[in-house]
């Protein structure tokens, strides 16, 4: 596979916060091919969010390099963010814009031709027509998450970074979002997907990486796991916890 087919690649990507602190991300070297749904898995605090922030130019690496759609996010963070879509796990839309205003705001920042049309399209996709004129602060968490998903995909990026997009959605919209992601990848888009829900990752992803204490401890293709008749969960527990599934469940608190 030639380099031209890579959506992103990293070489020794590392990040240390503060002087003398431990490395939050250490020597990450991996690549994701265009058209893949890549899932970055790892225990809490393992460095997933830091990795996404490094790849999208929100943080500068201490050492190592990254290329996202051919752009170095350290040197050209705005260029990288123009090309990709990002759905962070923690951020929510600004409190005092309405749902519709927020989508229009993002569409205009991204310089889309028909911001009103785009925003209407996404409101309809998530059946949010009744919520369009309410301030974001008054919307449910799930609705705010839908808006964040919409802003990440509204400009049809070739690569999207999405962090736990399903966690607050009802089963109907979970399926809708999963289906959208699959269709998007079929159309040539690439998704960099952070999640703790291994079943979902196994269902929709084509490849995965497992990160632990800032280091990449496992990577591979879902199809290879299936061939070996192993689940992603088995693999995760094998490499991320150094033990069999269920280890450490000694008792209730």
């Amino acid at each position: 596979m030639g380099k031209e087919n890579l959506a992103l690649e990293t070489a020794g990507l590392s990040k240390r916060f503060g002087k003398g602190g431990a490395e939050a991300v250490s020597g990450l070297t991996f690549s994701v091919k265009a058209g893949e749904i890549f899932s970055l898995l790892g225990p809490n605090g393992s460095g997933k969010t830091t990795t996404v922030r490094l790849l999208t130019g929100q943080l500068k690496p201490t050492r190592g390099t990254a290329k996202v759609l051919g752009v170095n996010p350290e040197k050209n963070p705005i260029g990288a963010r123009e090309l990709v879509g990002i759905m962070p796990e923690q951020e929510t839309p600004p409190s005092f814009l309405t749902a519709k205003e927020y989508l229009e705001f993002c569409a205009r920042i991204r310089g889309l031709e028909n911001p009103e049309g785009v925003s209407e399209e996404w409101l309809a996709f998530f059946s949010l027509e009744g919520e369009r004129d309410y301030l974001c602060k008054d919307l449910s968490r799930g609705t705010r998450q839908k808006l964040m998903f919409a802003q990440a995909f509204m400009h049809r990026p070739r690569l999207a970074f999405i962090d736990e997009p399903l966690i607050n959605l009802d089963p109907f919209f979970q399926k809708k979002v999963r289906d959208y992601m699959k269709e998007y990848a079929k159309g040539g888009g690439t998704i960099f997907f952070c999640t703790h829900v291994l079943e979902v990752a196994e269902k929709i992803c084509t490849s995965y990486g497992i990160i632990k204490d800032g280091r990449l401890v496992g990577k591979g293709r879902i199809s290879d796991l299936k061939r070996k008749k192993r689940s992603l969960e088995d693999e995760f527990f094998r490499v991320a916890t150094n033990g069999p599934k269920g280890k450490g469940r000694a008792g209730l608190p």
Binding site: I78, E91, R110
Partner: peptide, 13 residues
Amino acid sequence: SDFSGNYSFLPVK
């Protein structure tokens, strides 16, 4: 009245 997190994922200088 603003929060920079609102922009961290958008192409905003």
